[in-house]
Amino acid sequence: MRILIVEDEDHIRQQLRTAMRRQNYAVDVAKDGREGLYFATEYPYDLAIIDLGLPEISGITLIKELRENDKQFPILILTARSDWQDKVEGLEAGADDYVVKPFQMEEVNARINALLRRSAGSCKPSMSFGPLTINTTSKVALIGNTEMTLTSYEYNTLEYLAHNAGKVVSKTELTEHLYSQDFERDSNVIEVFIGRLRKKIDPDNQLKAIVTVRGQGYRFMLGASPQNSLST
């Protein structure tokens, strides 16, 4: 999952970046509204964290422009102005949730997880596909009751494919969503991740969880759509 952070305060921007990276997200950061608009227009993001009090272009204007440009990814607003007028204006502009400064990083993480789940059409933190269960909060995947040993990139690849179950996801799209803008990319790495995931999910190649669509990309085939589990 790739996240954009637009925050003018250096310390908070760095703290958020570090915290998001700890959660294995690919993170890009922008220090003002103009830069944020550029990144959000140029790269595909799964979520954006936007501070309302930004220089150049205000947070509200940035959110409105993104929505007008048909950018549908979830937006979490950060605001030091804790009054409801500002929160409502931010949400009316197109944001999906808010966090008031000063915040606890656990709260930010929880809001981000909830927003990512909602954008994937799931309400619960756990997604089940036959024997495969993915918990997006603890970032753990299980086959049956056995926890899979996955690297962060492998987990991110699996989660992204699972969020887009049934759809063809190209290598480029996967690369864009797994890596941040300043990361040196190698599309062959995606093939390696997919190969490893196939072996870990389905060592006997019976489930055929991830199929290759020639010339287009990959399709996650376990279940036409994610089934929501009541377990958390």
Binding site: I12, A80, R81, S82, K101, P102, F103
Partner: peptide, 19 residues
């Protein structure tokens, strides 16, 4: 609101560091 922003941003930094 500006005052709140000025006061709360450093508080947010301290808060996150304390985490």
């Amino acid at each position: 609101a500006d005052l709140a922003h000025s006061l709360k941003t450093p508080l947010a930094v301290i808060h996150t560091e304390l985490d």
